[in-house]
């Protein structure tokens, strides 16, 4: 039987040689293999061949949903939530959440947050004390009941 290819072949087409086609097909297959391996057994560490695990977890109907934030006392005497993004204190909330354990063990890591804020907003009140806070929202039968409960995980007196 005749080989049918995608679309019609035309005289002007630039064809690949045996080696060129073989190498390309092999590279594509290895790539697909790496992707499958990543999804089945690897972690985010294997980027870009890691699993596509964003929002992939099954959250039970009675889950406690935690949300980590940093609260700051300023030298103007106010208490504010630190804006956890690049423009705010130069560090993203996801980074703080991913490193919570380390920050609890070594609260001095929070110094970077105060430095980032002071550098980006030299005209705004400085942070004098930072608190890493975890808010917990309780689900009952898949619905949110009541406001979140805060818990302080780490405290850091900012160095000048």
């Amino acid at each position: 039987m005749t080989v049918v290819t995608d679309g019609q072949e035309r005289a002007g087409d630039v064809r690949l040689g045996r080696v060129g086609r073989g190498v390309r097909v092999a590279v594509a297959l290895v790539g697909i293999g790496l992707l499958i391996n990543g999804s089945v057994r690897a972690s985010d560490d294997a980027w870009p061949f890691g699993p596509m695990s964003q929002y992939a977890m099954s959250v039970p109907d009675d889950a406690s949903i935690t949300y980590t934030r940093i609260s700051a006392q300023t030298d103007a005497g106010t208490t504010v939530d630190v804006p956890l993004n690049i423009e705010g204190a130069g560090v993203a909330r996801a980074e703080i959440e991913a490193r919570t354990g380390e920050i609890v063990k070594d609260p001095s890591l929070l110094q970077q947050v105060a430095d980032g804020w002071a550098k980006k907003h030299p005209d705004k009140p400085k942070y004098v004390k930072l608190e890493l806070i975890r808010d917990t929202t309780q689900l009952v039968k898949g619905r949110v009941v009541g406001p979140p409960t805060p818990a302080v995980l780490a405290t850091w007196e900012v160095r000048r």
Binding site: M52, S53, M57, S58
Partner: peptide, 29 residues
């Protein structure tokens, strides 16, 4: 396609994700 695979894997290779409270969780956060 691999996001769907990751959803099965994180549940220990079971299809629990679509009936779970994952979007509620995401919105609360």
């Amino acid at each position: 396609f691999l996001s769907a695979i990751a959803k099965l894997r994180s549940a220990g290779w079971a299809l629990t994700w679509p009936g779970s409270a994952v979007l509620t969780w995401a919105i609360v956060r």
